[in-house]
Each structure stands twice: as C-alpha cells, then as structure tokens.
Design a protein around this nucleic acid. Structure first.
Length: 227
DNA sequence: ACCCAGGTGGCCC
DNA sequence: GGGCCACATGGG
C-alpha cells in the first residue's frame, strides 16, 4: 500500500468538508492551531467562541488583552496558562513586526516563514506547518501523531523523524494544496475515530496489509509505546 | 477510574 | 540528541 492508496482508501470512508478547518479569519486558524495542541477540538471550539464573544480574536486585541482575561477565555482548551502566554507573545510579535498584517507575513517563501514560526515560543513543527498549510496556503505537509502511527503500522517507511517523514510525504505526493489539506484532514478524522488503535481495529479502513501480529508483539514486549 | 486529545518546552543525562 | 515530565480541560 503506497501513500496515494492510503489517501484513496480514506477518501472512501470519510467525508471531509471542503473547508475542514472552520474559520472566519486567517488568524482564527493560527490561534486554533496553537490551542489544539494535545487537546480535543471540541475544547478548542469553546475557547474560540469565548474569544469571539469577548471580541478579542484578532491580532491587535489579543496582543493588548491582559493575561487573566485571556486565560479565562481559553481555559476550556487546557494548558491555558501556557497557551495564554504563547498567544499573547505571538500576537504581539505579529502586531509589532508585521503591523498585524498576515498577508505581509505569509507573502514569503514557506521555509523562511517556517523558520520564523519555529522561533516563537509555543510553536513547534506541527503547529508551524498547520499554520503554513491551512492559514498560509503553503505547500507544506503536516505530520501529527496519527500520521506517524499509520506510517509505522503500515510500514510505509522507516523514517520517523518529523522532517524526514514530511519529506517522504511531500516527495511522494503531487504538489497539490487541496490534496495536502484533505489528506491530513482524513488522517485526523481516522485518528479521532480509531484513536491509538489505528489500524488495529477490525473495522478500520486501513487494517488491510497491516502487519498486525508483529506490531502487537512489539506492543506487548513494550518495545515502543508509540507504535 | 481510567484513557485520550489535530504538542511543546525545559530539564537531565 | 534522545528520554522524561509538566502543562489542564472535557469527553468517552
């Protein structure tokens, strides 16, 4: 099973909305990307709703909102003190360096933007790439825990390092923004449904050709919890 | 009563 | 350059 086959198989099992990442503004996507770190999306929605109600879901307002107010608004999304700090810093950065203009921010080479994002506290590779792909419409594939699991269990590749895995996807898929967005969305939807058992469940669309026996033994022997 | 979520940073060795 | 751990809420 190669990457495109995985993609097509998933397409047959999940319905992805044309605009999978819900948003009214580009900045909302970036905020969501940060808030959703190790957090269920439902909780992020509550936080976003609060930010909208408070009228502070924009770069200028967020950069000026006091810490306590921000913390309370995003509390449902978990790790709220940490995230409040990250959001505050990041929006101040965008406001002072780019006058809060995301068109200016994104109107550059993706690699340059990525390096810059990675220097911001609270923004790691996955969050940076989510922002680049979904907010900036850059041709950058997002790797998350589900993606790694699928690659390991289907033995698609031996690569495990984030950047290597990303290159593997980007080298083996056609350069298509829609494809990148949809594929990641499909993987997330699969993950939501099958949790850590991808593709170990009987009804998982990817269970075919998974070397289940080998994986199960490794799990039992405790060789890796990430499998 | 667990287990998990659309991770990241900091510390230790 | 890895291996742990804290971070925190809400749903299954």
């Amino acid at each position: 099973m190669d990457l495109l086959a995985v993609y097509e198989r998933l397409l047959g099992h999940f319905k992805i909305k044309d605009c999978w990442w819900p948003h009214e503004t580009t900045f909302e996507i970036m905020v969501g990307a940060l808030l959703t770190q190790n957090t269920a999306w439902g909780n992020v929605e509550k936080a976003i709703k609060n930010l909208k109600t408070e009228g502070i879901l924009n770069i200028k307002s967020l950069s000026k909102t006091n810490r306590k107010k921000l913390e309370e608004a995003i509390r449902p999304s978990g790790f709220y003190k940490q995230k409040a700090g990250y959001l505050s810093e990041f929006s101040r950065y965008l406001y002072t360096k780019y006058e809060g203009d995301l068109n200016v921010f994104f109107n550059r080479n993706a690699c340059i933007i990525r390096q810059e994002l990675l220097l911001c506290r609270g923004i790691g590779k996955e969050t940076a790439d989510s922002m680049l792909l979904y907010a900036g419409n850059k041709l950058v594939f997002v790797i998350d825990a589900y993606t790694k699991r699928i690659c390991i269990r289907l033995e698609l590749t031996d690569l495990l390092d984030y950047d290597e895995l990303q290159s593997f996807f980007q080298d083996n898929l056609r350069k298509d923004l829609f494809l990148y967005k949809q594929f990641h969305a499909l993987i997330v939807e699969l993950g939501k449904k099958f949790c850590k058992r991808i593709p170990l469940c009987e009804d998982c669309p990817l269970k075919i050709k998974c070397k289940q026996q080998g994986i199960r033994e490794k799990l039992k022997k405790g060789e890796s919890r990430e499998l």
